[in-house]
Simulated scan of single mutants.
Amino acid sequence: MRAILLPVFFLIIHLAAAQRVIPLYLNGVPNARAVPDQEVNNAGQVVLNVSTPTLTVYTPPTPNGTAVIICPGGGYGALVIKREGYEVAEAFNKMGITAFVLKYRLPNDKTMVDKSIGPLQDAQQAIKLVRQRAAEWHVDVAKIGIVGFSAGGHLAATAGTHSERAMIDNSENVNLRPDFMILVYPVISFTDSLGHSGSRKNLLGESPSADQIKLYSNELQVTKQTPPAFLLHAGDDRIVSVENSLAFYEALHRHEVPAGMHIYPAGDHGFLNTPTRDEWMNLCKSWLQANGWLNK
């Protein structure tokens, strides 16, 4: 019995050591109002009212130097943090990738001075923090990517297309550009014809200006400096039209940014039944491998 229990004990110890929650900011959260924390955690599955951002660190047994910052979705009104965060981090760990689940602030006029920039501040701070502490986590500073789902995909794409516009204090001049993006059924555009109205309303309010809509329609913000991207979407997505991924891919291609894309005929929004996580993660693995991000 003891021989059986010992390996289980050491496995538990390893898992506990491999996952650690750290604050995103050490010297106060920028753009924040002094209000009580009203975060709601629904049995570890979904988080609401996030005003205190964190990173949950998932370290693989043998890191290969690549890291990903994972942005769960939820329409900028919630975070589907287990299914699109923790479970995805564990899958990346199996590839040897160090993963960081970003619990980013959800836009709210009560908790932020300017809610439109809060999530982007947190994404940029996550990139900055991982680069600054790369040696601690055995991460190559040139192999730090960002992964996003749905509205988290919009945030990841915003981080990739707005990296020259620092929304945080960056007196150290740390590179805020992710090295690659993986966008899964992402919201890309806030235009009337393509955009997800709920995400746009939550981030920009009821009546955003034309300039705001353009600024956060990331297919319009692609340049030659935008990082390479891999997009996954389902053609039958009834929540976020596949046209979002198509428009972003076309913009990347037009600016000669390396990009890959896979469109499933079925899967709807969230890939709840099909494709399986193993299936679409294998596509991510192949793309990462082909681009040299899985090599030590």
Rank of each mutant, 00 (worst) to 15 (best):
P72Y: 00
D268V: 10
Q289N: 13
L283S: 08
G270L: 09
T66R: 04
L203Y: 06
G260A: 07
L204Q: 05
S150E: 06
G153I: 02
W287R: 07
V257S: 02
Q212D: 12
R165I: 08
F100C: 03
S116V: 05
A17P: 02
G160T: 14
W293A: 07
H253C: 07
W137C: 08
R254Q: 15
S171V: 09
N273P: 00
E172Y: 04
F180W: 03
G85R: 00
Y264E: 10
S51E: 11
D278K: 15
Q38E: 14
E279Y: 11
L288Y: 01
Y216T: 08
T111Y: 01
I81V: 14
E219F: 02
G75T: 07
A229Q: 11
D268K: 15
P107R: 09
L176E: 09
I117C: 01
I69M: 01
L232K: 07
N173I: 01
S207I: 00
N31R: 14
V174C: 04
P275M: 12
V174Q: 05
V47M: 08
T56Y: 01
G74A: 07
S189C: 02
H162I: 04
P61M: 07
A151P: 05
P258W: 12
A234C: 15
N108R: 07
L6R: 14
Q19G: 03
R131F: 02
A16R: 13
V8E: 14
V113Q: 09
Y76S: 13
G153Y: 00
L215Q: 15
R200H: 02
R200I: 03
F271G: 05
Y25R: 03
N49M: 03
V50F: 06
V174D: 00
A17D: 09
H14Q: 11
I12N: 02
A135R: 06
G235D: 14
R238Q: 13
T98E: 01
L48C: 10
H253D: 12
R254I: 04
T274R: 15
P23L: 13
A16C: 14
Q124H: 01
V113S: 11
L24E: 00
A134R: 01
A142L: 09
L183H: 05
